[in-house]
Design a protein around this nucleic acid. Sequence first.
DNA 1: GAGCACTGC
Length: 860
Amino acid sequence: MTLTTALASGSTSAGHDSAAPMTNGISPSKSRSKVPNHLLAPSNSDVRVSNFHDDASDSSEEDYEPESTFSSALNRRSGKDQRISAPGGETDTSSPLTKSKKRKDRESLPNGNGNAKEREARPVKKGGEGSAEARRKEAERLFEKRQDLPFYQGRRMILEEIMKHDTTILLGETGCGKSTQLPQLLRTHTLSTSHYFNNHGKNAAAGPSIAITQPRRLPAIALANRVAAEMGCPIGGEVGYSVRFEEMTSRDTKIRYCTEGVLMRELANPDATQKVQSQSKDDGSSSNASTVEIHDGLNLLLKYDIIILDEAHERTLNTDFLCGALKKVQRIRKELAKSGKGKAKGDGAGKEVKELKLVVMSATLDPSKFQAFFGTGRDALLVKGRMYEVTTQHVANHVDDFIEAAGRQVINIHCGPGNEGDILVFMPGSDEIENCVELLRRVGKQLPDAQKQLQVLPLYAALPPSAQAKIFSPTPKNTRRVIVATNIAETSMTIPGVAYVVDTGYKKEKEYIYRTSGAIEQLRKKGISKAAAWQRTGRAGRERAGHCYRLFTKKAFDAMPEFDAPEIQRCNLSSAVLQLIAMGQNPFDFEYIDNPGRDAIAAAFQTLAGLEAISSPTHLTDLGRQMLRFPLDPPHARILISSFSLDCTNEIIDILSLINAGGTVFLDRPSDREEASTAKAKFVHRDGDHLTALNVFRSYIALRETKLSSSHKNSTGLGQGQGVVGWCKDNFVNGKTLVQALKIRDQLRELCEKAGKDWRVSAGSESAGVLRALLSGLFMNTAVIQADGSYRQTAGSLTVKIHPSSVLMSKRVPAILYDELTITSAFYARNVSVFEQHWLTEIPMFAKAGAAMPVGKGNL
DNA sequence: GAGCACTGC
């Protein structure tokens, strides 16, 4: 079977200023292109690849570097090995990764944001006088660059393929232009409009309406901005985006970039449906709200003609659920369109149900999974990316101390003759990073004066933004930068200037151990997959030819799994399963690309049933329906809903916002732990960590408000925010967490208002209601004290300890509830609060279980 | 008395 069809090759033609090489003497004409042969064309498979040329393009074969065509790359064994000395020995291997590459256009980087897609963005503000003309000029300028993209060369072929088929799989590396160009192509090309002209009848000019999903917010926003600029329209007009906390669309929006989560919500959330209905109403094309058709609970997403799933290779939880759900939507719409029952119910304008086109876009990895799932029965389309050659090298012998080995390799590179460019080191976690940074800084100080200096920077998500921003500041003169990073540098952040990658081959990953008594979490250091190793390797070839030093042997590499397990197979499914049921789907019958397994689904059912969100595997309760309105995990949603009747919504929203802000409230560095605990003391609430965190949040908000209002009054603007930042620092409080919590709080308050609930209702200083509400969602995460002072699970039989970071540590309280149970040197409950044991009798699950309850057996 | 990868609604 043919797996891929090559469409366009990365042009390496000269004459494009911005593609000029860096100062390392490598000219574009020298950049070679190969593909990861082992991924695309296993040597024992009967892969046949045809090479198409776009007849609409002016380019002839001669415009390409000989090796930049896909077929020649495939046929070529990667033979040009390059010998490099390794820290541990003398091995060398050439890389099958190297791909064709011409350096990306260098756009200015206003905010120092590192995302590749962000970098391309140039927002065009909506409105503003004379802006239309400015936008047109900018669009013209950008058009020159668009023509130079590999995608542009193959556009006709791509369009024909997509128009001919229901579902198309399109492969392309970063920089090929697929994410920005495909939606525009589908909207503006004559083939496209004629296709939709036939279907639309009178409203042909409207063209197709397109949704394109991204796993992350920033790229969704950046791509929308970029495409708006390219089309010369204001953002939020014809091109817009929808991500959490930010809606930038209007009734005119035809190209809508969104996060996967937003589209999932749209498929499942009754509120999202409401929104669609009211939008349809607004545009005047329909006389009532029933243009949205819900088919057995499944929203058919009739407002979209084409849905593009971008970065599908990442296989996030939502990618997988969207693939399954959209395949079903597509089939239903096809049936409705064919049977002539295609009229959306009660639609006065007589709008027909049109078929849904799907495009699944992915990096150039094995597309067979998607092909098999969607039954495309034909080639995936391939657009060549742009990447400089990267050579790889493995160590000869297993490395024990990878931190030391990484440090040594960095110094070797740094002191090697003629080595230019920055170094990116991949480490599993922050601890290893800090150790490695410390080591390198120490060694860096001992470098001879004649040697270039080393600037060593850590990079991981928990770092404050100011520390992260350093990565994007200009490197000081006569200095080489070394960035020691987690997986954040693998996909989420693109670091400029990297020519060398040092890969330890490790990452950290959260694992869930499921028990009938709830999950135990473990963050474990694990080996990476081959795909991840290539992804890391590729980080060196974005601006120039590069090298990747792998601190694991070739043998170890060969033994790595090809890909990471998809997220659906390694995380809690309760939220996704609830959404699936809301879509009218039975999670056991649902079509999965990779099945998560009965146990994982059953565990989700158990959680949902315990929370009274479902009454059967297919039936949502009113409570479940209510829970779906909030962007919270089911247990948290349950807590919020309980707060309505317990009169403590104000407090609970704040607490849930903090829990969901994705960081710790208190900074916890081993270096200043003592000072920190002194500072923390003034916020401590005797009932536990939740209310302690609430105290911090309230103090922070109060201070913030006084700062804001005072700076407003004297209008100097001086010192605004400074006090807040200083306050966080003085109190060892994580400002990032609090800022994020504020956003979530606003959203939850708004959603409460929409649901007719008053978020202002406060329990005052009375904590019982708050604790009861917490218990209503966290009842599985509870433990009672035993005679020896240890705690024993109520739902299970484990002995758990209160984590030393808790304010309840070393306090002997009768019963505790907690957010999570982690296993390290012991079973540690984290984020802990007290509750009264007899409250458990009010929890339906325990009330039913009756005898299983330890209530009344309290020891104290 | 400890050890936190990364996203998203």
